[in-house]
Amino acid sequence: MKKNAFFLIGGCIALALLAIFWYSVEVHVRFLAEISFIIAIGIIYLLRKKVTDFTEDERIAKISEQAALRTFQVSWVVFCALSIGAVMQILYVPTFTKADFEEFHPREILGPRMMGYFQLGLLCLMIFLYVGFRIYYARKYGDWETDEE
């Protein structure tokens, strides 16, 4: 399979995913979106292996590897910091705190909606970090170098 055909099929899969996501929101069936996402990633992975004119050498692999590693390193620190904060709210002990905390309802703060926003925030952070690190390492390892040829 040629590279252009792969990108074309990838675009079609992305559009189909968008439609499925829309439908799953309409009918409020989250498993539909989750399963379709996993299947789409699986299909893209299998198609990617069939592309013949993709040249991925060790420099490109190193850029991806370094970007992924740095993203992981930052993400786990942020995730742990936020999780510690969330656990502190769950493990609320009134004797450690002031009396006005009787009005405090930790379960309301950590409801499914907030957890959804929390996960969405982390996902966006990971994507931005990965893209940022990828640009940084691509530049470092000469991706935008020009020559006299």
Binding site: E58, K62, Y141, G142
Partner: peptide, 20 residues
Amino acid sequence: GVTRQTILAIEKGKYVPSLD
């Protein structure tokens, strides 16, 4: 079996190739 950009990066000293 590498990209032209990799050759350019090695020539310019931006990337150190593996032994292989």
